[in-house]
Computed example of a mutant assay.
Amino acid sequence: MIERARGLSAQDRVARVQEIRLIALAALSGHAEDFEAWKYYAELKNLKPKRPGIPFLEARIATCVVGRIRPATAMRTMQKLRNLRARGGQRREFDKFEALIKDHIGEGGVTNHGFGKASFADRDHGALWGRIGSHIETLGKAGYQVFLNSGTLLGVVRDGRLIDHDDDIDLAVVLKSGSAVAAAGEWKALRSDLQGMGVFDAENVTNPAIYKLKPEDGCEIDLFPAWIEEGRVFVYPHTFGELAEDDVLPLATCGVSGRPIPAAAEKMLALNYGEDWRQPDPYFKFPWRSARQRFQTFLEAIQ
């Protein structure tokens, strides 16, 4: 299959992408039992042009959705498709394609974590805040300050509630160290401490820079490291010294959840999501590559 893709002419590669797109779209609209998603996904990977156009993007998205594979890739590609359609004055065409995707997936839609999973639109927020509070209090007893972070912070500040299409909770813990290397050492030690507290979800940790706390009612809880260095704030992966200590500490109390948030939450959200953070964007994709470069010292020290 891979060798076949490599041996095709440019014209035949375009034609093959179109063919896979039609097959995937047909599967979206009908029966998909025999759809070989991983095969088509691998073939598309080897057919990918330098500047992917609409047929390739739609083929990749449809393949991921029908096969229930690579949800984060599907979300990222949807963003690219939306932007490309918008530049061409074809937003209506994107809306039609998006509707087809949503109709196929059904309730729950697609998130970075999966397809058709229960989102916050389906949950009792009050009960969830109570359970999350127990994790925050457990860390507090160990001397750590914890605040609502990233998408969770965005929801309570912008929407006055958890974001409907989101499905996990983001927290940040303020480490006591004053440098990236020292913070890395403390972060590594915290893993054992969390295990001792009985709140660490070791089975689901895939990124050593982001810990998983015990889920609540099936809701994943991500814990991110933060530290203060010479009066400047660092929160992996979005804040790299742009905020002053008093922009975060002392922590304020969220009027929606009753949980801690940064003192200047809006400043942090602008760093995390850009100046247009007030405009909802279900296909927002964080620039992880540049973040990893900025936090290289910390990331290398936790290995």
Rank of each mutant, 00 (worst) to 15 (best):
T206A: 08
V174S: 00
G155N: 05
L47W: 00
A270F: 07
E300A: 13
A74V: 06
L271I: 10
F147I: 11
D246W: 01
W277G: 06
L271K: 09
G106A: 08
H104D: 15
T111N: 07
G196A: 05
F56V: 11
Y283K: 13
Q195Y: 07
E137T: 14
V235R: 04
P260C: 06
D281A: 06
K188S: 12
A264D: 14
T138P: 11
E107T: 14
I169T: 03
F295R: 05
G196M: 00
I20S: 08
H113P: 13
K45Y: 14
G143K: 12
M197L: 09
G109C: 07
A127F: 10
R21F: 04
R16S: 14
S9D: 13
L251W: 00
R13K: 15
G218R: 01
G143H: 12
A10D: 15
A121N: 15
D167S: 02
A32C: 10
T63Y: 00
G155D: 06
A142M: 14
G88M: 11
F200C: 00
R294W: 01
K117I: 14
P287T: 04
I101R: 07
G116Q: 11
G258M: 04
L84E: 06
G114S: 14
A172N: 04
V65S: 03
T297L: 09
A32Y: 07
L81A: 04
I69T: 04
W277Q: 09
I20R: 10
A26Y: 11
V181Y: 00
I105N: 04
V17H: 07
V248S: 02
A270T: 12
L81C: 00
G178N: 13
A263S: 15
W288G: 12
N112Q: 15
K48G: 05
A252P: 00
L47H: 05
L153R: 00
P225G: 01
F284I: 11
P250H: 00
R294Y: 04
D159N: 05
L243N: 08
Q18W: 14
P250S: 07
G155M: 01
E98Q: 13
L190V: 00
P250D: 02
H31N: 15
E245K: 12
G130H: 14
P55Y: 08
L175P: 01
V248G: 04
R259S: 11
L44C: 03
I61Y: 02
I163W: 00
M75S: 10
R161Y: 06
P215I: 04
G178T: 13
